[in-house]
Lab assay of single mutants.
Amino acid sequence: MEVRTIKVFTTVDNINLHTQVVDMSMTYGQQFGPTYLDGADVTKIKPHNSHEGKTFYVLPNDDTLRVEAFEYYHTTDPSFLGRYMSALNHTKKWKYPQVNGLTSIKWADNNCYLATALLTLQQIELKFNPPALQDAYYRARAGEAANFCALILAYCNKTVGELGDVRETMSYLFQHANLDSCKRVLNVVCKTCGQQQTTLKGVEAVMYMGTLSYEQFKKGVQIPCTCGKQATKYLVQQESPFVMMSAPPAQYELKHGTFTCASEYTGNYQCGHYKHITSKETLYCIDGALLTKSSEYKGPITDVFYKENSYTTTIK
């Protein structure tokens, strides 16, 4: 009895394709271990004539594949690729409408935090270190965002349907971005203890939790000093293409032309909904596939993004 075979390709990165001759009487799992086709788990399936010449994702289970996976995804987590594939199996079914010149995501599976993050990423200057993220990001900007969303979920250790947080998501993504040249110098002034300067680099240099107003941050924000008295913390120097200011959701007025974009969060910790506000020729609110415009805006804002380049204080 002759062994019926077909020729397929296996890959971990969709760049390096490895030619395989597979036995049609055995499952993919018996031949390769966990195997995925377009995100779908085909591990328990036997090869079919229609699979001839198709590319299958496999887990990096030998040295060659491990090197290829690390170079593309910059992670050695053995569960990463499987999590990416199972997320992709959902995100490829989502709709990605162009809204006001940006790629958004039609609401499904509690994905409003991903839509808000995706919209924000198209408006701030950011370059990702893992080629996987950078490639998928370019495709997302062009309207094909399924891979990018699935990668975000995998890097953030999230599953489809789980509630997510924009600030946490951005923080994970910033860790995989090139923020080497970003720098922030802060000064804390206390009447009792004097003053202390701190220099922050990388992710810490672009994120701040405690106030939404970048102007206020430049002037000074009140913080408790270690001595128990009130101290003032203010920005001395900022070198970065953008800054992200966050605070627990509270009524906040966004003035046209003073910011790049913002995240609105309605609801409580267990259950809520994100919308995205962007400042173009007027203010726009993007909620999944829905767009509304207004000249002014007041609502429960939790993150505001500002364009920056270089700032030095005039406070002496």
Rank of each mutant, 00 (worst) to 15 (best):
D135Y: 08
Q175D: 05
S50V: 12
Y172S: 13
N187P: 06
G33H: 06
R139Q: 13
L151F: 04
S263L: 06
L65M: 10
P130G: 02
T199E: 11
E239S: 09
E52H: 14
H276D: 01
C225T: 01
S79W: 08
S310L: 15
Q230Y: 15
C271L: 14
L133I: 04
T211D: 06
P248F: 15
K158P: 00
L102M: 11
D38A: 10
V8Y: 06
G33C: 05
T312K: 07
C156A: 07
T282M: 12
V67L: 15
A247K: 02
H74Q: 09
Y138N: 14
A115P: 05
D287W: 01
A40D: 15
T76C: 15
G288D: 04
I277T: 01
V206I: 11
V203P: 15
L133Y: 01
A231R: 02
C156G: 05
R139C: 12
L212N: 02
C271R: 15
E71H: 08
M209W: 15
L179N: 00
G257D: 14
M209N: 15
C227G: 01
K44F: 14
T199G: 05
E253Q: 10
A205H: 04
P60T: 07
Q196I: 09
L114G: 02
E162T: 03
Q197P: 07
L200D: 09
H51S: 05
P241R: 06
L118G: 04
T10K: 13
S104F: 06
P249G: 00
E281I: 03
V21M: 15
T116Y: 00
E144D: 15
T198G: 03
H276S: 05
E68S: 08
R83W: 04
K44A: 15
M207K: 09
I6E: 05
M244N: 01
T258A: 10
Q222E: 13
N49Q: 12
Q195R: 10
D13L: 03
Q238F: 02
A262F: 00
K183P: 01
P78M: 11
P47I: 06
P47Y: 04
F56H: 04
C285I: 13
N61M: 12
W107E: 03
V166G: 01
P78R: 14
Q122R: 04
V42G: 06
V189Q: 08
V160Y: 01
T278F: 11
R184M: 00
G299R: 06
K316T: 08
V221R: 03
A146M: 07
N89M: 08
P97E: 10
A145T: 04
K183G: 04
S263G: 00
Y311V: 08
E253A: 11
K92I: 11
K280M: 15
Y214W: 09
V206R: 02
N49W: 08
Q222K: 13
Q216H: 12
G29A: 08
K95T: 13
Y214F: 10
G143P: 03
S263Y: 00
P78V: 09
I105Q: 02
K7R: 13
F70L: 15
V185E: 01
A154R: 03
S79Q: 15
S246D: 01
M170F: 08
T260Q: 08
Q230N: 12
C285G: 03
C261T: 02
N16T: 09
A40N: 15
Y274S: 01
S25H: 10
F56K: 04
Q195V: 15
Q238A: 05
K183Y: 14
Y306D: 01
T302G: 04
L114D: 01
Q222T: 11
D13K: 05
F56L: 11
N89C: 14
G228L: 03
S171Q: 12
C271M: 15
Y284H: 11
V21C: 14
K44P: 14
E168A: 12
P78L: 10
M26P: 06
E144S: 12
S294N: 10
R4I: 14
A117V: 12
K233Y: 06
L291S: 15
F305P: 00
E162Q: 10
R66D: 08
G220D: 04
N16R: 10
C227L: 00
Y96D: 02
W107H: 02
W94Q: 01
V42Y: 14
K95R: 10
V160C: 08
E264F: 02
C227T: 02
